[in-house]
Design a protein around this nucleic acid. Structure first.
Length: 475
DNA sequence: ATGTAC
């Protein structure tokens, strides 16, 4: 491992070296530092620091691990006029993100319903790779989804006006669908309302602890022991195709930015035609991702209605928040006292705007920051802390972060062993494959409490509520 | 993450 400067208990600096234009800043503690099995992710932080127009620092959140080009858990902002956009800085799963949905149902009273609801969702939400949706949309619908996001879902009765208020950007990014290939459109056609595979999941939780009651109430998650639902998925094959298309296009484009350190970091100037087209296509894929989570939310409402026998309004099934953790977004921050328009890449990182830095419903508190843990343990909802605009462009981590590679996890754990473990924790598990069970085993992930301690200690965000899983569905 | 590959 190369030299790191310890700045404080929660921040380590990778000093300037080689072609780095800014230092690397790692938001980690000593324990997380000691858990790195190799320096691959840190090299990726250094490589990102060499890209044109990067400002302040190439950053990594405590859930950092190896990704395509950029590390997962990476945050990097580029000057909008002089900087670049990099598909690897968003990742293959554009607008991969989380929705948290609250209910008024008390866990003790409705314990009987949990497994039945999950079984119903297992039938209605296709999971795993290449699992087609029964949810049909025509070309006109798909065009509208990619250009208007949740506005389409609202017009067609799949979203409430409250859902839109409780979604990042109102579930609508400005896009241009002409930048999206026919192939991507074709893949998206029968993928709406599907979960996907890997670390994607749908789980029923109970609200466990409340750390900040006033904020929790504002979020609609202020009561202990109520059932809640978490969805983790993104833009599926459509977004994956957009990423593939633009990586190919940038490789064929003379004006693209290629750095000797890593060809996966291929980028385009934001103002270039391919750069502009990628942003338009990424935003279109993001709209698809928002609608995908919304259609699953709709199916969750249907499942609860069927099993509980009441309409979803009476059950109080409301979106707490739906957020993206794989996105590049145009935002303005003050750098050395000067306000600058930036393109903030967050790859496996969550926006965490504190009180006063956002408008609308969450203006007084800041918006919810949803951090899922592994399938056997707690997840957290945080809220951004004032001052994080100055440190991380108001960004937080996105999960516990893997500690073992999928390969190592497969060697170390057995399907039956993990199933027994989940049973002993009192959690009902349904997965499409044994592979998903072992790869997503609790032992494959960092302790989320270490990750949250860093986020809080570094002044990025603080806990509002925690949730414990009671039934989990894995793709 | 992903019609798990070109």
């Amino acid at each position: 491992m190369f030299h790191l400067n310890k700045l404080n208990d929660f921040q380590y600096e990778i000093p300037l070296a080689g072609n780095m234009k800014v230092p690397g800043i790692l938001y980690i503690n000593e324990k997380i530092l000691s858990q790195f099995s190799d320096d691959g992710p840190l090299k990726q932080v250094m490589n990102v620091a060499t890209l044109p127009g990067i400002v302040k620092a190439s950053m990594a959140m405590p859930d950092i691990h190896l990704g395509y080009g950029f590390p997962i858990g990476g945050v990097a902002a580029f000057d909008y006029d002089d900087g670049v956009v990099s598909p690897g800085g968003v990742g293959y799963d554009i607008n991969c993100g989380v929705s948290l949905i609250a209910t008024d149902l008390d866990y003790d009273e409705y314990r009987w319903s949990v497994n039945r609801i999950l079984d119903e969702l297992y039938k209605t939400v296709p999971a795993g790779i290449d699992n087609k949706s029964s949810f049909r949309i025509n070309c006109e619908d798909e065009n509208e989804i990619l250009s208007s996001g949740l506005e389409w879902a609202f017009r067609h009765g799949y979203a409430t006006d409250e859902d839109i208020i409780h979604t990042e950007e109102g579930g609508h990014m400005i896009s241009n669908i002409s930048a999206v290939s026919e192939k991507a459109m074709k893949r998206g056609k029968n993928e709406l309302g599907t979960l996907g595979a890997g670390n994607h999941f749908l789980e029923i939780d109970r609200i466990d602890r409340i750390f900040d009651r006033k904020t929790a109430e504002k979020f609609g998650s202020g009561r202990e022991n109520k059932l809640a639902i978490m969805i983790h998925t993104g833009s599926r094959g459509l977004g994956h195709q957009v990423a593939t298309d633009y990586l190919t296009r940038l490789n064929e484009y003379d004006g693209s930015v290629k750095i000797p350190e890593d060809r996966q970091l291929i980028s385009a100037h934001i103002s270039s035609k391919p750069g502009e087209d990628y942003i338009n296509a990424m935003n279109a894929a993001a709209n698809f991702g928002f609608v995908n989570r919304q259609i699953i939310t709709y199916k969750i409402r249907e499942a609860f209605e069927k099993i509980i026998g009441m309409d979803f309004e009476s059950i109080g099934i409301n979106t707490v928040y739906s957020l993206a953790h794989n996105m590049a977004k145009v935002e303005t921050y003050s750098i050395d006292g000067i306000k600058r328009k930036l393109l903030v890449h967050r790859k496996g990182a969550t926006r965490a705007q504190p009180a006063g830095s956002t408008t609308g419903y969450f203006q007084e508190t800041g918006h919810p920051v949803i951090i899922p843990g592994h399938m056997g343990g707690p997840s957290y909802v945080l809220v951004g802390l004032k001052g994080n605009e100055e440190t991380t462009f108001s960004s937080s981590c996105h999960g516990a972060g893997r500690i073992l590679s999928r390969k190592v996890a497969t060697e170390r754990f057995t399907v039956d062993g993990v199933k027994d473990d989940m049973r002993s924790r009192g959690i009902y598990l349904r997965a499409t494959t044994g592979k998903a069970v072992v790869e997503e085993s609790p032992g494959s992930y960092k302790n989320i409490d270490d990750v949250i301690a860093v986020i809080q200690g570094a002044g990025i965000a603080s806990p509002v509520v925690s949730l414990m899983p009671v039934a989990v569905m894995k793709g």
